[in-house]
């Protein structure tokens, strides 16, 4: 037990939490923007995977990590557009279309990787680049906090910055306003001349771009290679994080951190004498538990409102009787 606390309260652990939260956070922001526009995007997993590969290939070809990132984000956005085309134009069930994208991503990435580099499952022959880490001069020297907060990959900072940007975008800009209107009451948006389809396209493209950042981080920051299925469900965890975070940027950030913490825990606890398999289960179990608590709470709320109304009704009916 002492070991356990030693791990949890170590500086390394704090650093690790931020590190593993990054891809979940990007994807959660992607989930958020599409959810706000009223389309559920369960293709985040596949989008991240595709972008992760794109980042590796682009950076290897161009010898530039920046161009790799750019490629990853653009391809993520393109996949978002494809999803939008199928869901909105061809009226494919958005869940099935997303499953298809995930499947294509799972195999397609392996296929393309082999085509490009001749590698099977892991990009060992591609000399891909890694995005830089940043030491923050002042913060670095703060004891305890410094080593936790400083020295992360640039995308980690960008991920947390994206929460703030997302907040501004959704709540402060006209486009954000329209996205929220479309997601909540498409008829109302339509009645004031907003094109619902255009807004949902925009949201899915942005969602894909954010997943693209997450994917780029996986292969050009978290590790420095691409491997088969490397996202390991993070796109789905992000979906749960977004829902549990009450569909707000900050809420989603906190739940992402929570899941990130469990993820980091499963990495750090491997030194303990607990079977590794149980530790690896932690992030997924935590997600399910979180999801259930969230959904149960919501159902409870509705029940409470109904119960309240029933009470009022009885009161009302009794009054009628007395009259």
């Amino acid at each position: 037990m002492a070991d356990f606390f030693n791990i949890i309260f170590s500086v390394d652990f704090g650093y690790a939490v931020l590190r593993v939260t990054t891809p979940i956070l990007f994807a959660a922001m992607g989930a958020l923007i599409s959810d706000k526009a009223g389309v559920i995007n369960i293709a985040l997993e596949g989008m991240m995977l595709i972008s992760a590969l794109t980042g590796v290939i682009m950076s290897a070809l161009s010898h530039s990590a920046g161009l790799g990132l750019l490629g990853a984000v653009i391809v993520g956005a393109l996949v978002g557009m494809v999803l939008a085309y199928f869901a909105l134009n061809l009226k494919t069930d958005v869940i099935l279309a997303a499953i298809a994208i995930n499947l294509i991503a799972m195999g397609g990435t392996v296929f393309v990787l082999f085509m490009v580099g001749g590698d099977k499952g892991i990009s060992s022959s591609l000399a891909s680049k890694v995005l830089p880490r940043i030491d923050i001069p002042l913060i670095r020297s703060i004891p305890v906090l410094g080593p936790i907060l400083s020295g992360h990959n640039i995308l980690t900072y960008l991920a947390f910055l994206s929460v703030w940007v997302m907040y501004i975008f959704i709540y402060r800009t006209p486009l954000g306003l329209r996205i929220r209107a479309v997601g909540e009451n498409a008829d109302a948006a339509d009645s004031v001349g907003i094109s619902v389809r255009k807004i949902q396209y925009t949201a899915l493209i942005l969602s894909g771009a954010l997943a693209g950042f997450g994917g780029a981080y996986m292969s050009m920051g978290y590790v420095s290679w691409f491997s088969k299925n490397m996202t390991a469900g993070r796109g789905f965890i992000a979906l749960a994080a977004e829902a549990m975070g009450g569909a707000t940027p900050h809420g989603a950030m906190f739940t992402s951190l929570l899941f990130g913490m469990f993820d980091a825990l499963s990495n750090s606890l491997q030194t303990l004498r607990v079977p590794a398999e149980f530790i690896q289960m932690i992030p997924y179990l935590a997600t399910v538990i979180g999801l259930v608590i969230y959904a149960a709470n919501k159902t409870e709320q509705i029940k409470r409102i109904q119960a309240h109304q029933n009470r009022e009704a009885r009161k009302g009916a009794q009054e009628v009787k007395l009259l």
Partner: peptide, 24 residues
């Protein structure tokens, strides 16, 4: 050629079959 090419076939099939407006 890698066998994963079938994943591409699968994906394209799914979206087209599930697309209500495909050939509607």
């Amino acid at each position: 050629v890698q066998s994963e090419v079938v994943y591409i076939i699968q994906g394209v099939m799914i979206v087209l079959i599930a697309a209500e407006s495909f050939l509607a």
